[in-house]
Design a protein around this nucleic acid. Structure first.
Lengths: 241, 241
DNA sequence: GGATAGATTTCGTGG
DNA sequence: CCACGAAGTCTATCC
């Protein structure tokens, strides 16, 4: 990994065209040749970047044949001492960085990272609800998780106390897209005479008002899930055995 | 901006819980106190991070009162020399970095960045199509861009050669969501007796097969836009005046 | 400030 | 390898 702090300008051409005027920034060159351009603020997203796989070519001003005449009458922005030309292997996207003043330049070997270990995602929520389907109502039973349809799997298919089929869509945060998704599933499931009628249930840790309204309009029930409570039930149950 | 290369372990608790085992990584502390943890690969997304607004508190091992007894019988991973505790001001999300060995530690002042200048986004595509609405068919005319409805503005409302109203949704890349969005608009527009019947047109630089099928199923026409061609027409036209 | 839609999204996962 | 859904998404825009 190479870390450079430099006064530079940056140009990107690819999916879009973008330009960064001359300013002091952090440039990161990773082991795979990818480049990140960071400012001293904002969030984790760089101002500009090039994703791997790509190739970085560095040109020093001294090496440029016509350096002398170029330098004669140019804007300060173009009076660079080093130019980086980064080209994406597949898309041809190009990132050009012109370094006018290099304030810091270090390289260090990091090695391969063991990677992030996550916990608490939607999959876990789905597993917990499937294991505790009776929290939705007495005598409810699980048909199966990831019930397959032509346009993708429904999170949970269940039967309510009356033996009616219920398709459940689970989201961490319930927004309008989730209701649309469930609507498409219901349309398909209700075409199957062996299943129909199938009603919908939209389950999330929090459901936005607009999603609630849309769901209501389509006859879809909404349920708010309590992650900690579900986990609690699950722990309590497992302690019984 | 502070740049630290260190052998460290990282723990995050917030929306989810995540852990990074001991390894050598780049740690970036920005002027606003936000922290990024980068490995020497992957894309621009850090392995872990804390977004602003947040507070960073640094503890040196020497300062820890019970350092001696702690160090006596701990795992190498917990034999840290410095600990960073970063807490988000609003959400309370916490990032804890334990530095076991510091290989590099530099600080530098960057100043405020002038920011990125973009070109070629969806707005431009919309403007180009609005100016060249006749590319969709002879005698087509523009009613207006950003035609307002109760659930948001339709990109373009136009009239075809027969005087029929057409609602056009424009995307860079045509996917299923765009068809859903246009469907909602059409439902609303067709409730207006002064406009109805309104037909739909889905316009994008490229339309995915699944989106095409869904659009076809709903009687929505699909059109592939050629950005460069539209820009060319526009340039040619402006040269006439 | 909250909600919404787009992104050079990136990142998994499943077929 | 492609396609789709989720993300601690982030970011700009609009109301």
């Amino acid at each position: 990994m190479r870390l450079v702090v430099a006064k530079c300008s940056v140009d990107y051409t690819g999916r879009l065209t973008a330009h960064l005027p001359l300013a002091t920034r952090l440039l990161i060159v990773k082991a795979d040749g990818s480049v990140l351009v960071h400012s001293d603020g904002g969030s984790y997203k760089p101002l500009n970047w090039m994703s791997p796989p790509c190739r970085l070519r560095v040109t020093d001003r001294a090496d440029a044949e016509d350096a002398a005449e170029d330098a004669a009458a140019t804007l300060p922005e173009e009076d660079w001492v080093q130019e980086w030309d980064v080209v994406h292997d597949k898309t041809g996207d190009r990132l050009r960085v012109r370094l006018v003043e290099i304030l810091q330049d270090t390289s260090i070997e990091l090695g391969i990272d063991p990677g992030l270990q996550k916990d608490g995602v939607e999959a876990h929520l789905q597993a917990l609800l499937a294991q505790n389907i009776e929290t939705l109502g007495e005598d409810w039973s699980l048909v199966r998780r990831e019930y397959p349809t032509a346009i993708g799997p429904v999170d949970i298919l269940a039967r309510d106390a009356d033996g009616g089929t219920v398709a459940i869509e689970i989201k961490r945060r319930g927004e309008i897209d989730g209701v649309e998704q469930l609507t498409r599933y219901l349309e398909l499931l209700n075409r199957d005479p062996l299943l129909a009628p199938v009603r919908g249930m939209f389950a999330a840790q929090a459901i936005k008002p607009q999603a609630k309204v849309l769901a209501g309009d389509r006859g879809i029930d909404c349920v708010t899930l309590d992650y900690d409570a579900l986990r609690g039930i699950d722990d309590a149950e497992s302690r019984l055995f």
